[in-house]
Design a binder for these strands. Structure first.
Lengths: 228, 228
DNA sequence: ATTGATTATGCTGCATACAGAATACTTGCC
DNA sequence: GGCAAGTATTCTGTATGCAGCATAATCAAT
């Protein structure tokens, strides 16, 4: 049924759950964004007092958020020295993309079997919306939809754990990927690959989808290469 | 009150890097063990004051450790209510094993290509040691070596990210897996599959290894099934 | 007796205080 | 001028205090 303990998710089925926000959760979200946006640059040390003041929060919830970020691999904690925004080497990048590729392939294959027609149609809708943003050259919105599609395909597998793992890895390279897609040629290539992905998914052709994802992720590595 | 900085074996391994241990790190490790051992049972609420006193630590580092455990998926945090040890449903279990299978397959394939002969020999040594523990029916030591072998195969791929993801997922089902292997028939089955894995790895037969891992993980699901 | 309301207790979430380490700075010496 | 030692400052790591929510306990009323 539902994952975890399930009491909350069952309740949220019918009624919108009243979500009590904690500060560390809020801070966590904000800091993730700051890292992805580059406000917190890779290699930069995180001064707890400073960031805390900036967010209007004491050090306690901030530190708790940092621990989570560390567990997600977005920051690195050096005892008695503090946390620094993690800097990814080209090897890290290759490793991440390799795993990400396999996760998406698994997600895609499973989605071909399990996903409902509605779910696939929704992904197609995302794709169309993305293409529209491509037409008008709105890179930020395009990018967001792009990420959403990748997530949606994995989500369509119905495997929560897979989604979770995919999400953390995707977060790690989000920034580099965004920068990497600069340049019209690269952009065009990525768009073409996406089109093929959606088509394979609609045909529920797991074999083809797997191959396209392989191609797409390997291309991504090339596109991102010179950003490092 | 705090234990030593590092073990002797670590120090003699390579150059002794002075690693400053923080309390939240220490607590994190301890709590992981407590969850796996069952001292903290699934579904049980974690009382910060209680556990803190038990470990001789204030609530601050404890809470930080809990945040990490939550990020690892071992506990679940309910705002204003506290953290509870996560209880996995059969669906969760299936999802975890599905992803784990794919990660290990990727690790195995890559290891067949990249791993040095020495690395593979070391894994064979682990396997032989495990078989010895099987012979004397030392289930705990057997289990530890079993886990170590799976980790070692993934590690042999040289992909750190893969190792990390594999590690977190492995931790989630560690306890269930341990309980699941009870009974001589199940145990014998697992041992046979392991033997085949090592042989495939030594031949660097990626195809065969992938298939054995598939078999092994699917069998694991069956072995663990009735524990839920 | 059961239900509902009300009080009481316990625990979490956050802020703050303090000790010790790490870094920056100053000063003296060559 | 450059280097070294010693001092000052900053920042992290941990403990503690306090407010608010959640739950348990108590009691009243039907």
């Amino acid at each position: 049924m539902t994952s975890g303990v399930g009491t909350l998710s069952e309740a949220s089925e019918a009624y919108p759950r009243i979500q009590r926000r904690t500060l560390h959760d809020e801070v966590l979200e904000r800091m993730r964004d700051m890292i992805i946006e580059g406000t917190l640059a890779p290699g930069q040390r995180i001064n707890e007092g400073l960031i805390g003041a900036q967010l209007g929060v004491s050090r306690t919830p901030l530190r708790e958020a940092i621990k989570t970020l560390a567990s997600e691999g977005l920051v690195e904690i050096q005892p008695a020295k503090g946390a620094i925004v993690r800097k990814f080497s080209s090897t890290d990048m290759r490793n991440i993309l390799e795993v990400l590729k396999n996760l998406e392939q698994l997600g895609g294959r499973t989605a071909c079997e399990n996903a409902s027609d509605e779910t696939i149609a929704a992904i197609r809708a995302l794709h169309d919306a993305m293409m529209e943003q491509y037409r008008v050259r709105n890179r930020l919105e395009y990018f967001k939809l792009n990420q959403a599609i990748h997530s949606a395909i994995v989500a369509a597998s119905g495997n929560d754990v897979l989604m979770e793992m995919h999400g953390t890895l995707q977060a790690r390279i989000k920034r580099l990927r965004f920068i990497g897609n600069e340049g019209p040629d690269k952009w065009a290539g990525a768009v073409a690959e996406h089109e093929a992905m959606i088509e394979a998914l609609e045909k529920r052709d797991a074999e083809a989808l797997t191959e396209v994802i392989r191609l797409h992720m390997d291309s991504t590595r090339l596109r991102v290469w010179d950003v490092l």
